[in-house]
């Protein structure tokens, strides 16, 4: 067992676990896009990033690929992390606004604007289908081809693969293929029909104060804390 600090709590976790697994074990929900329990971690979407190390020299790492260590200090919902996460979701929204998974993420994490031109890409290159095909289906029919901005998921030589058994695992797991619900704002790049409340605690504290889902935006409490903070500031 390894001792570590998770959002200020001293916890014991099993050696060899990733930070994401440890956090989920203790009931802290870190959003992910390219992660799946049954597949090897890939660290591509960066949504699961967390802050590690003592404050002042902390760094952001992807929690799905970072293993726990003795004495590790992890903050999963610090102001810095939440800000970056929102930015990432905004970028994903611009890449693939027709995806229900991404729209849901935007609503859940209170992303209310998209400052980039929507691209309506078919693929976000999360690699879930490639790993699904190779690791769960033992198919290895699809994979990445080309590189840089031309990178895409393809079959060998862009023809129907002999290895493919048409199992449909790739479509099942694809977050970009799930089209969004046919709401009134369907044409807009951002739906926000299921918008969660914005967490007010980050305005007053460095970290999230609770992990209620959906957020109840403790308006009364937040106001009180604000008063307390300004009073402390005077003292």
């Amino acid at each position: 067992m390894v001792q570590m600090t998770l959002n200020g709590l001293r916890v014991e976790v099993e050696e060899g676990m990733t930070i994401l697994e440890a956090a989920r074990f203790y009931g802290i929900n870190i959003p992910t896009l390219c992660y799946h329990e049954g597949l090897s971690p890939y660290g591509a979407c960066r949504l699961c990033l967390v802050e590690i190390g003592p404050s002042g020299q902390s760094k952001l790492v992807s929690s799905c690929t970072h293993r726990v260590e003795e004495g590790l200090v992890v903050r999963t919902h610090s102001e810095r992390v939440v800000k970056r996460r929102k930015m990432l979701i905004e970028l994903y929204l611009a890449t693939c606004p027709q995806s229900r998974v991404i729209q849901d993420l935007a609503s859940k994490y209170h992303v209310t604007r998209v400052r980039f031109t929507p691209r309506y890409e078919d693929c976000i290159l999360c690699g879930l289908c490639v790993r699904m095909c190779a690791e769960q289906m033992q198919g290895k029919a699809i994979g990445f081809a080309h590189r840089g901005s031309n990178r895409k998921v393809a079959t060998p030589f862009d023809v129907k693969s002999e290895e493919c058994r048409l199992c449909g695992g790739c479509m099942y797991i694809c977050p970009a293929c799930q089209s969004r619900c046919q709401g009134p704002q369907e044409e807009e790049p951002l739906c926000n029909a299921c918008l969660n409340l914005d967490q007010p605690c980050l305005n007053y504290f460095d970290d999230n104060m609770c992990f209620m889902d959906p957020c109840v935006a403790c308006e009364l409490g937040a106001g009180r804390e604000a008063k307390a903070k300004s009073r402390d500031g005077r003292l």
Binding site: A145, T155, P156, S161
Partner: peptide, 21 residues
Amino acid sequence: LRKLSQKTGIPLIEIYHAATF
């Protein structure tokens, strides 16, 4: 490349991945 994949057991997609990269 197809023959190479059959001979070595390297998945064809891995060969294609490297060849296009």
